[in-house]
């Protein structure tokens, strides 16, 4: 009898806690599978630019958590040989196929996902490129259109040296020490 009671209470507790967790997940989630991420390197000798239109990302409006996965081989260059060298000699794309970001909007309290408007945000988290993880932060904007869409825009610097990406001395004048990374995402509401 006592055990049955225990089980009953236990069951209630499980239901209780799972409902809490359901409430916790109540905030909308937003996603994209075709986000635009690009980088730009400029030196006196050469300008290098590459675009990726296949970035996936999820944004949780409840807690501001944000994640990105970017397929390195999906970066497209103007010159075919540059693209080959990028994957083959610099990024080791077969070994490290993706760049990953896991972080959160630090000032999520200032964003009202229910009201159309442009909000300045600061995103902090861990960026993994070429198998190396670094803590990063970036300023950006969230543009809530009030119709279920959010446009996220940011630009921040990335140094190849921080991610163990070696630039040989013969091309050291062609490749910038610091690249500018641009993120341009159109999030849509995620429906289960």
């Amino acid at each position: 009898m006592k055990t049955k009671l225990g089980l009953g209470i236990g069951f209630c507790l499980i239901v209780f806690f799972s409902s809490i967790s359901a409430i916790a997940q109540n905030g909308e989630k937003y996603f994209t599978k075709d986000g635009h991420v690009s980088f730009y390197s400029e030196t006196k000798i050469e300008t290098i630019e590459a675009d990726n239109h296949k970035a996936t990302s999820v944004l949780d409006s409840e807690n501001g958590k944000m994640e990105f996965a970017i397929l390195i081989k999906a970066f497209e260059f103007e010159k075919a040989l540059m693209q080959e060298h990028f994957n083959e000699n610099y990024m080791d794309s077969d070994e490290f196929p993706k760049a990953i970001f896991k972080g959160a909007i630090a000032n999520i309290d200032e964003v009202n996902f229910g009201e159309a408007g442009t909000y300045n945000v600061r995103v902090e988290g861990d960026l993994t490129i070429h198998g190396v993880t670094q803590a990063v932060s970036a300023e950006g904007t969230l543009e809530v259109d009030g119709d279920g869409g959010i446009k996220a825009v940011s630009e921040f610097p990335v140094k190849p040296a921080d991610y163990d990406i070696k630039i040989p001395s013969v091309v050291v004048d062609n490749i910038a020490e610091e690249m500018s990374v641009k993120v341009n995402i159109d999030y849509k509401v995620f429906k289960r």
Partner: peptide
């Protein structure tokens, strides 16, 4: 047992 169950449900949470 109760405690254990609570603990488990916390974990799943």
């Amino acid at each position: 047992k109760k405690l254990l169950l609570v603990f488990l449900s916390m974990l799943s949470f």
